[in-house]
């Protein structure tokens, strides 16, 4: 009846986030500025300890379970189930059928290889399971590879917030990208 596996792709699994196991690994990822900036773990971007990540993620999982207006998945490699990052829908507005999405991969080499596949799974979940009308995401102009990947999935730059992010002694623009369900379906973003 259903031919699509929502939580599996060619190389990746969308798995439950396990604070006991994953927080230590993720704490290491927060040394990478692109990761910690993109994450919603802390308002200021700085490397976090395992204790901090575990505490934040446990709070987030509690909110996810109670409110049902946010979702958090661990991204794992199918071959060895190694934790490599997260897919988050930090805010789902049911009345507007609008979701925000964040996809974070902990290492640059893995990001090059798997960001698109992971983002595609996040979009598929938001559209095909949650029936969102629009999914939006944001990135900084200092992350052209992330922007390029999101655009390759059909997301379009809708907003350019001037000088919204301070990093390495200068201000950068923050970009908001979005894709509607009809665009997702029309273009049938199957690889």
């Amino acid at each position: 009846m259903f031919t699509t596996q929502l939580f599996e792709s060619q190389s990746l699994l969308l798995d439950p986030y396990d604070p006991e196991k994953d927080a230590t690994m993720e704490a290491g990822f927060t040394r990478r500025w692109n990761y910690i900036w993109g994450s919603l773990l802390y308002s200021e971007s700085h490397p976090l300890s395992s204790f901090q990540v575990k505490k934040k993620r446990e709070e987030q999982l509690k909110r996810c379970a109670e409110s049902r207006d946010s979702f958090l998945f661990a991204i794992r490699l199918r071959e060895d189930e190694r934790f490599i990052g997260v897919v988050e829908l930090p805010w789902v507005s049911w009345s507007n059928r609008l979701a925000w999405m964040k996809v974070l991969i902990g290492e640059e080499s893995l990001e090059v290889k798997y960001l698109r596949e992971a983002a595609r799974m996040g979009l598929r979940y938001a559209f095909e399971e949650l029936d969102m009308a629009l999914v939006a995401s944001s990135t900084g102009e200092f992350q052209p590879q992330v922007l390029h990947t999101l655009q390759s999935l059909g997301m379009q730059v809708c907003v350019r917030q001037r000088q919204m992010v301070y990093f390495q002694s200068r201000y950068w623009d923050r970009l908001v990208v979005g894709i509607s369900q009809s665009d997702w379906q029309t273009n049938n973003w199957e690889d």
Binding site: L98, C158, R160, R162, Q163, M164
Partner: peptide
Amino acid sequence: FREEGRLPGALVKAGKRCDLIFMGIL
């Protein structure tokens, strides 16, 4: 404030979809 873009059809008000406009002032 200057308009910096809009998310088309992001919100539903009174049964109609409307754009969410982003504005900023430096």
